[in-house]
């Protein structure tokens, strides 16, 4: 009994300390292991995101290649053929007694040639490849103005640097979509397009005085058709490492600003 009473505090202390160490180890293990698991999860998500981004880029590149091919075919094959037909009609018109009778088909052919050129240009703007992004946007504004009759003001600020052709094309598509949206949905009477440089970033802003839109509501919309343009814009922006800002402070109209780093990150 005496032996028991002298040894007991030691046994008790050892067992209790053992239990406490076990409990403390469990707490520490959970704290550290959870951190490690989160890091792993983050890495996995990053890889998935990279993969998705690459897939998206590949899909957009193939889309652009297909557009380029179609534009080329339309311009060089169908366009050339139509031009040849026009020359033929003009020649025939000189040889027949009533050349006026061919005036109407000739006019229709001219319209068709114009349409083919327009489609070809929309599919792949040659100005972009020849003269760069700013000139292509300027031309786009002029074309949209000509077709919609809505005044589109184009302004350029600072010295613009040129960048990778594929990125320029992607950015051009974003501007094209923004202008399209402004014309189709804003009900505005004036559109401003600004392209400028700020440090190592290119700024592109499209602004209108129409009814405005709620980007968050469009994101949350369950209607699969709604917000698709916005979704495409944001996908392209992500591939460009660009930031999109929707001006939420204005009471009327809308302003979307795209901030694109010149250097691809």
């Amino acid at each position: 009994m005496e032996q028991d009473s002298t040894n007991f505090p030691l046994i008790f202390s050892l067992l209790t300390v053992g239990m406490l160490i076990m409990a403390g180890s469990i707490v520490l293990f959970v704290a550290f292991y959870q951190k490690k698991m989160l890091q792993e999860q983050f890495k996995r998500k990053q890889l998935e995101l990279d993969y998705q981004q690459r897939m998206m880029q590949a899909s957009m590149e193939s889309e652009e290649n297909e557009r380029r091919r179609l534009a080329g075919e339309l311009h060089d094959s169908i366009g050339a053929m139509l031009s040849t037909i026009r020359v033929g009609i003009t020649t025939v018109a000189r040889q027949i007694p009533d050349p006026q009778s061919l005036e109407q088909p000739k006019q229709m052919l001219d319209d068709t040639i114009q349409s083919v050129r327009k489609i070809s240009r929309d599919l792949m703007p040659s100005t972009l490849e020849k003269f760069g992004f700013a000139q292509a946007v300027k031309e786009l504004c002029e074309r949209f103005h000509a077709t919609s009759q809505v005044p589109i003001q184009y302004t350029e600020k600072g010295e613009l640097k040129s960048f990778d052709k594929n990125r320029e094309l992607m950015l051009f598509r974003v501007v094209q979509e923004l202008l399209n949206n402004a014309l189709k949905h804003s009900q505005g009477t004036l559109i401003n397009v600004m392209v400028g440089s700020e440090g190592e970033q290119l700024l592109v802003a499209v602004e209108d005085n129409g009814i405005g839109f709620d980007a968050e509501a469009l994101h949350l919309s369950t209607d699969s058709g709604r917000g698709l343009g916005l979704f495409n814009i944001e996908n392209r922006a992500r591939l460009l490492n660009a930031k999109i800002e929707y001006d939420k402070t204005r009471s009327s109209g809308s302003k979307t600003t795209l901030i694109v780093p010149y250097e691809k990150v």
């Binding site: 028991d4 008790f12 067992l15 209790t16 239990m19 406490l20 409990a23 403390g24 707490v27």
Partner: peptide, 25 residues
């Protein structure tokens, strides 16, 4: 949860031996 785990782990041995401590020792 940590508080409960540590407290009950630490006192488990004490509760187990309470009867022995009071009745035998």
């Amino acid at each position: 949860n940590s508080a409960l785990l540590i407290f009950f782990s630490g006192t488990f041995i004490l509760y187990t031996f309470t009867s022995y401590l009071t009745n035998v020792l």
